[in-house]
Write a protein that binds this DNA or RNA. Structure first.
Lengths: 197, 197
DNA sequence: ATAATTTTTTGACTTTTGTCAAAAGTTGGG
DNA sequence: CCCAACTTTTGACAAAAGTCAAAAAATTAT
């Protein structure tokens, strides 16, 4: 019988994988050996515009955002990520092209960092790892689809109300200025919407 | 040496997979045995609101759209799919929950249809199939992300201009009424934007 | 605690986009 | 070739959301 291995910071990541497909001890060891646990202060950029993204992060503790600058130089947040979520610049990480967006921590973070090179090695060596990778990608894809639909289908006010309903905790951890651009509206409009209710 | 198998309608689908990961003859045969080539007239619904999506389609020939009805009962198109693209209702197919959107053909279509049950069997039996599935999901995920960013970041006019630039062919095959809701604007606004230029 | 910084709100005004109704243009069968 | 159905455009007006500037409130550092 194989020993039960618990790697502290990796426990939640392993649980996530295990909930999708059985995780062998060999693959667990590979994941640990091919990754790094890092601590990053808040307001630190993990990726800047023009850089190529080589790393995917799993958030053990903390929060981060993905954003870019529009033509007028204003920040537009596209994603907020918290504990037990995967943090990447989708476009740059998948294509290897220079990023048009930033990744920045919102709070002090503990992250598990995996280089794309190592990840690709694991995907080739442990074919069943692609099963989990596929399922996780499907899940994030779905979240994206819902996000795009909301932007098309609903007014500023409705989008705000849905967000409050679906993710009230977000408002505890992220400033309204950040949330406004995520909702695709100006900060002033968000402030007025909140007053109305 | 193994025979070269060419299955007519499957050729482009196989080429797509082959461009991602080597495709064994065994898997080719499984794909053919677990799918169906169907012909569907235009304006036919492949999925309706409330139904659970059990099928993923590969478009051999023709065009289709994914859309839903907003509160006022107006159609909002979220996606147009053409030759060599995969056609699904992301939410319903991935979760198995009832769909909130419709899939409808825009032209007479030839499609390769795969039931989720069969697809899942293949994902379990041929682990390397998950490699291709993962890569394809990553690609569609990326397209989605770009779409959501465009909706947040750009004005109606800019979104129109980007679409003309990136996908001029779309305007040859899809009516402006359909394209308007895809861009998240009213048909009248689209008409006025086009006149300006 | 206080000053400095950052975030949020408010007011006045402008711009963008939507709505409704009708006209014009286009397309496809019979 | 012509009618019916559908698509696109136009006009007048309304509603939604943005902008700029400043005030108020909250947070952080000293």
């Amino acid at each position: 019988m194989s020993e039960i291995i618990t790697y502290g910071d990796y426990q939640n990541l392993f649980n996530l994988f295990k909930s999708i497909y059985p995780l062998s001890n060999e693959l667990k060891v590979a994941i640990v050996n091919n990754s790094e646990v890092i601590e990053v202060n808040k307001k630190v950029k993990l990726l800047s515009v023009g850089e190529r993204s080589h790393t995917i992060y799993f958030v053990v503790k903390g929060a981060a955002r993905v954003y870019y600058l529009n033509k007028e130089g204003k920040e537009t947040n596209t994603w907020f990520l918290f504990e037990n979520e995967l943090l990447i610049s989708v476009y740059s990480f998948y294509t290897g092209n220079p990023s048009f967006e930033y990744i920045e921590t919102l709070e002090d973070c503990k992250l598990i960092a995996v280089k794309r090179e190592k990840l690709d090695e694991m995907y080739l060596k442990y074919m069943e790892f692609n099963f989990s990778g596929r399922k996780l990608t499907e899940f994030y894809h779905m979240r994206n689809e819902i996000q795009a639909n909301d932007l098309r289908m609903y007014s500023a006010k409705e989008r705000y109300e849905h967000l409050v309903e679906r993710n009230p905790a977000l408002f505890q951890r992220v400033s309204l200025g950040h949330i406004a651009s995520y909702l695709g509206i100006s900060q002033e409009t968000l402030s007025r919407i909140r007053k109305q209710k």
